[in-house]
């Protein structure tokens, strides 16, 4: 796992200003919390405590409420992800075609488990449910690049492209 830094030195003030703007734009909207969290995560890549606190203050709710929502939904993450986020689809169509073996190979090659990030912060692995390309099952996605009809054998070659 990447070493944890105190988030105030990571978060630059420009992004924080943008966050203020986002909060301002959503203030009058009913049910604004989730849309704001989406945008904040887009901005920072994850939702550190400082960001959650700012959102809580800005929208007039408690930090506990923000934390509660942020941890309920699997799309929100409180930890930064690796530079390359590798998603292996474990949806039904992919699973019946052996996606678990692809994941296994990947975990073995990178030495981490799904949900973790490599020490150097380069790769993280995530198991997801259906990325909607079931016709290409089993599917692996690295950032925005989709790799279809995967076999365990293909993993190493694909990783090499990112090294």
């Amino acid at each position: 796992m990447a070493e944890k830094k105190c988030c105030c030195c990571e978060l630059n003030s420009e992004k924080l200003k943008r966050l203020d703007q986002i909060i301002e734009e959503h203030k009058t909207m009913e049910g604004a919390l989730i849309p704001v969290l989406h945008e904040a995560q887009e901005l920072f890549g994850y939702l550190p405590e400082q960001v959650q606190q700012k959102i809580a203050t800005g929208l007039g709710c408690s930090l506990a409420e923000v934390f509660g929502v942020a941890t309920f939904y699997s799309r929100f993450t409180l930890e930064p992800k690796g530079k390359y986020n590798i998603q292996v689809c474990l949806g039904t169509a992919c699973y019946v075609k052996g996606a678990d073996k692809v994941l296994e190979k990947l975990e073995q090659l990178l030495g981490i488990k799904a949900g973790q990030t490599t020490e150097d912060g380069k790769f993280s692995i995530q198991d997801t449910r259906c990325v909607g390309a079931c016709g290409l099952a089993p599917v692996m996605v690295i950032n925005d690049e989709v790799y279809g009809k995967m076999t365990p054998d293909m993993v190493e070659g694909i990783l090499a492209k990112y090294n």
Partner: peptide, 10 residues
């Protein structure tokens, strides 16, 4: 569309 392996609605 939560059913994993389904993409009709999408």
């Amino acid at each position: 569309e939560g059913d994993p392996g389904a993409f009709m609605d999408r």
